[in-house]
Design a binder for these strands. Structure first.
Length: 446
DNA sequence: CTCGGAACTT
DNA sequence: AAGTTCCGAG
């Protein structure tokens, strides 16, 4: 078991590879391990990304995953019951959340790590233009660390964060060993992700980056600094800030002013149908694909609505409007969402009832619909004799799954239409109504 | 299956 | 801190 980071290229950003050296974690972490398995095709029959939902994965063989985990941790008594308990501890930490109704299905909260750094993204511009079926395979963000945004003012665009190459932080000494987090995400307005985010920062900065050009040290400053990595060809979007001016501002660093209006959409993600074959995996460059990012963020927004996550999970930034109805990527999913968009559930009971009824809703488009993983019908114990050495038997299904599905039609945001509102009086009413009530009203109306 | 409390371990 | 182990409840 060699360090995953040194195996074959970067499939995930550094934060996914917490190392022993990382403060606060001397040993492999479960989510880290999960990511590791997810990364390898050999385990595709044991655990795999769920198609259609970014960051969602299915444990196809709970016993096997538990066994592997137990082996890694030298806990022969490990089983899915225990493993899942550990997984559940991630709920509060916002590392994972459960996909209700789907057995053995969980979802990573990647947004926790990404969102704080892209508050200025305008998701509206192009929702659902990006491939949908590919698993979240963040790539090549390795050399960077993203200082957290000012936690206290998520909306203060005047205090943008700053990107800097972690290779610059030779000391890697940001060790923000904050013992201030946990459970603290109670306050409605504070984004508890900030503390976690710092962790992510640690992870990345702790990684001794490859010497990528000697740029001087830099301290955190309120201006955004985007590392300059000229990678011709990886910026398909002409609107990418990098496509615009790849010329170094100074010292090889681009100083890009942030404004909420600016559709600056750098992304550390790159969805590749076949992780191992990603053209980017070999590079350690920053890749920016606005479309992907937007889609990703949108997907996350959907999660917030569909999984009843706290809105806190999805930072509220100006210009970041994510109407639930926009979540219809797949025709089949659209039915899901429309149903889920019923008035907020009152209690757990209600929630579950709604979900179950939704599950039974007739799916209309079988087209490229991701096949719901057939979970061990009867817990059949087909000999998984070998594991690591197992030859991945690529099923045609899997291949199909890598096909990008284009959403039916580019949706138009129903909320806050630039045009006019149907009912003027109601509008006025709304204006007088407290935000909460207004929202509730909308829930009920639509 | 899923959840989360509680005590315990490393 | 990050699980591990055990377990009652839904």
């Amino acid at each position: 078991w060699l360090c995953p980071v040194h195996t074959k290229g970067y499939q995930f950003p550094d934060w996914a590879y917490k190392t022993e050296s990382s403060p606060g974690s001397r040993q492999i972490q479960l989510w880290h391990f999960i990511l590791e398995l997810l990364q390898k095709e050999e385990f595709r029959h044991v655990i795999a990304w769920q198609q259609g939902e970014y960051g969602e994965f299915v444990i196809k063989d709970p016993d096997e995953v538990a066994r592997l985990w137990g082996r890694r941790k030298c806990k022969p008594q490990m089983n899915y019951d225990k493993l899942s308990r550990a997984l559940r501890y991630y709920y509060n930490k916002r590392i994972l959340h459960k996909t209700k109704g789907k057995r053995f299905t969980y979802k990573f909260n990647f947004n926790k790590l990404v969102m704080p750094n892209y508050p200025f993204i305008n998701i509206r511009s192009s929702a659902g233009v990006v491939p949908q079926s590919a698993p979240p395979v963040p790539t090549a963000s390795s050399r960077f660390h993203f200082p957290p945004l000012d936690t206290h003012s998520p909306t203060s665009d005047v205090q943008p964060g700053r990107f800097s190459a972690s290779s610059l932080t030779t000391s890697g000494q940001e060790s923000l060993s904050d013992g201030t987090d946990r459970k603290a995400e109670l306050s409605e307005l504070e984004d508890g992700s900030a503390t976690d985010w710092r962790r992510g920062v640690d992870l990345m900065s702790s990684r001794n980056a490859v010497g990528g050009g000697g740029i001087g040290h830099q301290k955190r400053k309120p201006d955004i600094m985007l590392p300059l990595f000229t990678r011709p060809g990886i910026y398909p979007d002409p609107h990418s800030p990098f496509a615009v001016s790849p010329i170094p501002g100074r010292g090889g660093v681009l100083n890009v002013p942030i404004s909420p209006a600016l559709s600056l959409t750098p992304t550390i993600f790159s969805y590749s149908p076949s992780p191992g074959l990603s053209p980017f995996t070999s590079s350690s460059c920053f890749s920016f694909n606005p479309e992907e990012m937007k889609h990703y963020l949108h997907s996350q927004a959907c999660s917030v609505f569909n999984y009843h996550l706290s809105p806190r999970t999805f930072p509220r930034y100006p210009g970041l409007m994510v109407p639930p109805l926009q979540c219809q990527m797949h025709p089949e999913e659209s039915t899901q969402f429309s149903i889920k968009l019923q008035p907020p559930p009152v209690g757990r009971k209600n929630r579950e009832r709604a979900e179950s009824s939704e599950e039974s809703a007739p799916g209309s488009a079988p087209a490229a619909a991701p096949i719901p993983p057939r979970i061990k019908p009867a817990r059949e114990k087909e000999g998984h004799a070998q594991e690591e050495g197992t030859v991945p038997s690529r099923t045609t299904e899997e291949e199909k799954g890598t096909i990008f599905v284009r959403p039916a039609a580019p949706p138009v945001w129903p909320s806050v239409p630039p045009g006019k509102e149907p009912n003027t009086s109601e509008k006025k009413e709304d204006a007088l109504m407290p935000p909460k009530l207004r929202l509730k009203r909308r829930w009920n109306d639509d």
